[in-house]
Design a protein around this nucleic acid. Sequence first.
DNA 1: CGTTATTTTTTAAACATTTACACCATTAAA
DNA 2: TTTAATGGTGTAAATGTTTAAAAAATAACG
Lengths: 349, 349
Amino acid sequence: MKFEAVTIKDIAKALGISTSTVSRALRDSYEISSETKQLVLDCAEKLNYHPNPIALSLKERRSRSIGVVVCEIANSFFSQVINGIESIAYEKGYNVIISQSHESYEREIMDLHYLSSRSVDGLLISLSTETNDISHLLSLQEKGMPIVLFDRVSHEIKTHNVVVDNFKGAYEATEHLLNMGYKNIAAIANSEFLSITTERLAGYKEALANHNIKYNPTYVKHCFYGGMIFSEIEEAVNKLFTLKQKPDAIITTSDKLTTGCLKTLMRRGIKVPDDIALVGFSNSDLAELLNPPLTVVRQPAMEMGRAATELLLQLIESKRPVTQFENRVLTPELIIGNSSVLQQEETIK
Amino acid sequence: MKFEAVTIKDIAKALGISTSTVSRALRDSYEISSETKQLVLDCAEKLNYHPNPIALSLKERRSRSIGVVVCEIANSFFSQVINGIESIAYEKGYNVIISQSHESYEREIMDLHYLSSRSVDGLLISLSTETNDISHLLSLQEKGMPIVLFDRVSHEIKTHNVVVDNFKGAYEATEHLLNMGYKNIAAIANSEFLSITTERLAGYKEALANHNIKYNPTYVKHCFYGGMIFSEIEEAVNKLFTLKQKPDAIITTSDKLTTGCLKTLMRRGIKVPDDIALVGFSNSDLAELLNPPLTVVRQPAMEMGRAATELLLQLIESKRPVTQFENRVLTPELIIGNSSVLQQEETIK
DNA sequence: CGTTATTTTTTAAACATTTACACCATTAAA
DNA sequence: TTTAATGGTGTAAATGTTTAAAAAATAACG
């Protein structure tokens, strides 16, 4: 049922020469006379010859493919990152093999096993929420596998990183809320394991401090699965609303948390921003269409995918072992909607 | 820089036996004595042997990977489909190589070339908007490449298809608008080339006919690039609003068109549903959070991906050539929001 | 014409694996 | 005792390609 392709042998046989001559002619080696070259090229053309990438992979011990592990494909942020990855990979003749960890540590390990056994030439990974031990990555790296982390990174592994300035994103979002007159700002954040969580919360705290607002730990709720389990978010919101001093604003630190939080508020009949303001990290194209149009911190996701892939290919194609690693930091963008702007205060600036 | 893996040879050398014995022992061949088997297995374990899939691919002339071509990854519908594809592929030990056509015929051809030269074992494809000639698919199929089409299909190629009941989805959406009292229902649709367009418009027309509303061709606007170019949608909306008899409702036939249309209406300050109602095909998770909560036709995207992959693997793994092809039709779901329900008429039913 | 230098081509090994076939002991049957 | 069958293992070829090394063909030169 498989179509058998034309091989170098077929060309050799057709022309009555050896396969090595054909091989060299095709790669335009200086050792082959130009007549023979032309002959081979014409014949290859005529027979519609295409080199077999698998045989090549076997020979060269490289597959010209890269593995990607994200927690979920169907997520605006990650699908945009993948878009960026794909664009560079396509350009450079690599293919992209994608797998999802579904935020599970176990699944992440299996994915990595799978990808490395499929002999990808390198790996792009954004850690799962459950991952706080990265020895699986370290051992892969030790065996020589080039790895680049993006978004959810770890400083326990020495390699290229691509992240957004999470501190800045959260700082600006929080400051924006403060400028709008909000004083009791709660945060709904991801798992404490994740780099994005600590960095974003740090920005949040710093903004509070700089505006002389005391940091209140009960205002910070963590959703371990980042909203993959919806009840997590409901619970976080509920807890915030049972506090004596209810918050007047919420900042959420990821796409799923942001939309999940809005959903919960809407279902509970809580008006945004009248009852409570909301600002969140989100890469949804629909932020401005939401009710209310959402103030979001938007990450240059596509750019992140592109940068990570470029760095990875650099690692893969480097002749000598790389020891100097780059930590590329992209800039997030605060897009102001109505979810953080009280109607009557809209004139405040 | 590449880590050299343990091979069957290393095991053979370590135990002083031949590679063929090792190979057979590992695949648990009946020809090998159980002592030898145990010896080999233990040794393999100890050396952390993993079979080289590339060598296997070369030998077996199959790569255990499938190629996917969609127009865009960062799109709720397609990312959900990919999620489904990935889940089945993972289960069955195949990997998924994704590429995007970006709605370009030329790019689609290049993608297919690329994937087939990478010797994927089969292809899953949803046609680009520009594709009205599928000879590239036919010639691939002729060479023995198993192909399954989904969502945007063509009846010019005999193979498995997985689609949603587009007629029904559009019919029910239109009928819903009619039931809500709307009479002048416009449609913003994709390229006329696409199967989804004709099927969905057919459902729309049939619903009108069954409610004794005359079909008005000027109410139907096509966006060739399905809203990938935003101005297309603006133009379509503008044209509808310059008609003498302005429509009182719009039905949109795809994700991008739906959100794009809502965006245009919002930017123009047109109130939905007060000024005009809107119902659209969409797989966004955020439909209920939009302003207004959108009435949408939702496709079982994940299910579609799963079904298409199952059918493809069936083709790939079939011993004998398959001649009976299945056209699997899934059922869409109409989710009613507020975008199609006039507030004062909310009681009408 | 014979020798050397140069150009061109072929041979063979390698990449990791599978498998038809051959081989060699045993052991059972004749 | 010979023959045949059986069980276990090794040899070698095959998958498609590259490449070092050997070989052959050609050219140059005295």
